[in-house]
Design a protein around this nucleic acid. Structure first.
Length: 134
DNA sequence: CTCTTTTGACCCCGC
DNA sequence: AGCGGGGTCAAAAGA
């Protein structure tokens, strides 16, 4: 039962090859969600995906996002189970330029960005997969 | 041309 | 100190 030694064995190497091309990222997400209309939890900030890995320890896909601003030490981790519409978002660090609103980039209003804290919040309903839209 | 996203490899941290 | 797993970075393609 040797599963991994490097790169866990599957990583993101699993490409979508079921014949249909996805136009946007959401399509790929639906693939991992089992066809569920997963949406990216827009928190008001812009994030840049810098990595994705399947955590075999918990059997979940984890995506790593970072703030687009270099002066921003804030990081975001999103993990979801293959076949589950709900995902968990973990915020790490804090923004140094503030403006979590969909303003257009954020000028200067630090402090408000720290509202995310370092807690793990569930989207879609933690332990209660009962979205009003479905 | 620049920015963003995707995948594999490598490095670092924790045990 | 070594191994395992997680996390990060880098290169290429697409928009």
């Amino acid at each position: 039962p040797l599963i991994c030694s490097k790169s866990l064995g599957n990583e993101g190497g699993e490409r979508g090859h079921h014949g249909d091309e996805e136009e946007q990222q959401q399509g790929a997400w639906a693939e991992a969600a089992g066809g569920q209309p997963l949406v990216m939890p827009e928190d008001g900030y812009q994030w840049k995906k810098y990595g994705q890995k399947f955590i075999k320890n918990i059997q979940k896909i984890r995506s790593y996002f970072r703030c687009r601003d270099k002066r921003c030490g804030a990081k975001k981790k999103v993990e979801w189970q293959p076949g589950d519409p709900n995902l968990r978002v973990v915020y790490d660090g804090a923004h140094q330029h503030g403006s979590p609103s969909s303003n257009g980039g954020g000028q200067d209003a630090d402090g408000a960005a720290n509202r995310y804290d370092l807690s793990t919040q569930y989207f879609g309903g933690a332990g209660a997969p009962t979205p009003q839209t479905q």
